[in-house]
Design a protein around this nucleic acid. Structure first.
Lengths: 118, 118
DNA sequence: TGAACATATGAGCAAATGATCATATGTTGA
DNA sequence: TCAACATATGATCATTTGCTCATATGTTCA
């Protein structure tokens, strides 16, 4: 029987660790949070989101704008859609995508502040 | 001479594309923004950041808290440090990490709102 | 000075990821 | 109904990524 070793250090601050453990959100919540930010953490996706800050656009528009294939954009939109960051409406053959809600805008603005200030 | 094909669609909304192109930030900015969010987009790193919301912690504390090796945590802290999301102070052998500034807190809170509301 | 300990780091590997290509789906208009 | 077109999707491949292991660095104290 071998104990799983996580850290051979002595626990230096038992209190701090326990307090942190209590106030840390559930694993599932933190996982979801990471998944959310992962969506913003790719150049192509952040470009798409940023483009949609101004107006809705169809798949083809975005592909032209970002100089990428229709397929690449479609795949990424699918990802963004599954993360509820964008919504869409169909008009005939054309599918228009837009930001799902204002959280997206807020998060991008917050990030922009961070990188411009430091 | 072959033109690089990006999208074989007709441009459906020339105006929208041009407007979007004008208001889109520079490529470098968007790249940096993606890099920033990438830091939040991993379970381990978001857990570290979340843990540091409450208090500063040393490497060993975090390793115990998250049940991961000291090495794994150290590597991730290095990443977070290079992204200026955490700062540290040394006290003898022990290195205490803390959030770099309140943007980190704001961004996490914003993300938390998004996942709890939908 | 040297053992003990906290942290940092480089190499290696398996898993995740994003783009492309080929093709499928679905809509329109002749 | 069928050709043309906008979008979606599955397979594939190269790159990126996060962890582990081994080891280096740096600090304290006897």
């Amino acid at each position: 029987m071998k104990e799983i070793e996580t850290c051979e250090c002595e626990v230096v601050h038992q209190d701090a660790v326990e307090t942190a453990a209590r106030r840390l959100p559930q694993d599932e919540t933190l996982y979801d949070l990471a998944e959310l930010f992962k969506l913003f953490g790719d150049s192509t996706r952040i470009k798409i989101l940023d483009a949609l800050l101004g107006t809705e656009l169809c798949v083809c528009d975005i592909a032209k704008l970002l100089n990428l294939t229709q397929s690449a954009i479609s795949h990424q939109l699918r990802t963004l859609k599954s993360g509820k960051l964008v919504r869409f409406r169909k008009e005939g053959k054309v599918v228009y995508y837009a930001l799902a809600d204002d959280h997206v805008r807020s998060i991008i603005e917050m990030g922009m502040e961070h990188i411009t200030e430091s």
